[in-house]
């Protein structure tokens, strides 16, 4: 399996007035396509910082980061936006849906910034994603009319809409009870089974049990990296879903000629 994410000697420092916070101190990591990684570690160990860099929301102080074949570490702000909109999907702890939009409109947002025209076809695609996460009957509801679990499912649908290479999730079950958490994890497992690469930050061991690989961090470095022999959900009766069209149609490839306007 080719590595979809490759990080070499990643360092991230936060420079405050008085001192420097060294959030990442030389992280080396490769994530193969189709893997399901759980990032664990004590609070302040740099999990979110690493995930933000992997999600192209932040640039590292030094080090290299290859997403596919492209070195993302030195890209401009506009190029990073382009990468996010085309190749990455985000799931947040606090769902982060826009309250003034309906379920379908929330799912549509990433398409808006791909510069693609919103047509009946894209609308149907968004509806089918809403159905996939079990919200086909809630298309015109607003986020505030949904439960936390339902909101997180909308967020999952939204993270899929651009057919991303990698899905990044920062404590996706942090605000949910264990039953709803399991539902969400079931869904992510299913996506992973269909070939999606997932990198997820979590505090809870039972959540990490769903992943194929568990990475523990401490003080900005990777402490341990363990393959999960038998992830939960693996071998469970996961209903088959038609997810073929979720796999990226093209490899990660940002044109070199791309210039921020």
């Amino acid at each position: 399996m080719p590595a979809v994410v490759r990080v070499i000697d990643l360092v991230k420092n936060y420079y405050l007035q008085s001192d420097t916070v060294r959030a990442l101190r030389g992280v080396n990591l490769e994530v193969a396509e189709g893997d399901f990684v759980a990032l664990m570690g004590p609070s302040g160990s740099g999990k979110s910082t690493l995930l933000n860099v992997l999600g192209c929301l932040d640039r590292p102080t030094s080090g290299e980061y290859y997403l596919g074949e492209e070195n993302v570490a030195r890209m401009t702000d506009d190029q990073l936006s382009e990468i996010r909109s085309r190749y990455l999907g985000f799931i947040f702890q606090s769902y982060n849906l826009l309250p003034q939009y309906t379920v379908v409109e929330n799912i549509e947002i990433p398409l808006l910034y791909q510069g693609c025209k919103l047509t009946e076809e894209t609308r149907q695609w968004c509806i089918s994603l809403a159905e996939l996460v079990g919200l086909g009957h809630r298309l015109d509801h607003r986020p505030l009319q949904l439960s936390g679990g339902q909101q997180q499912r909308v967020a999952i649908a939204r993270s899929l809409v651009n057919r991303p290479q990698v899905i990044l999730a920062d404590e996706p079950t942090g605000n949910l009870d264990s039953k709803t958490s399991d539902e969400i994890m079931m869904m992510l497992t299913r996506l992973n089974a269909e070939g999606k690469t997932i990198i997820m930050v979590t505090h809870e061991n039972d959540i990490a049990e769903w992943a194929r690989r568990v990475i523990r961090m401490r003080d900005g470095q990777i402490e341990s990296d363990i393959r999960n022999k038998r992830p939960r959900g693996f071998g469970d009766s996961v209903p088959e879903l038609p997810l073929d069209n979720l796999t990226p149609t093209s490899p990660v490839n940002v044109p070199n000629s791309y210039s921020p306007g």
């Binding site: 985000f90 982060n96 826009l98 939204r158 651009n162």
Partner: peptide, 16 residues
């Protein structure tokens, strides 16, 4: 501000 953050994360450029 939060909405701006969400949109940026989902691919909005500064220009957008």
């Amino acid at each position: 501000t939060r909405e701006i953050g969400i949109r940026r994360a989902l691919g909005a450029k500064r220009r957008d």
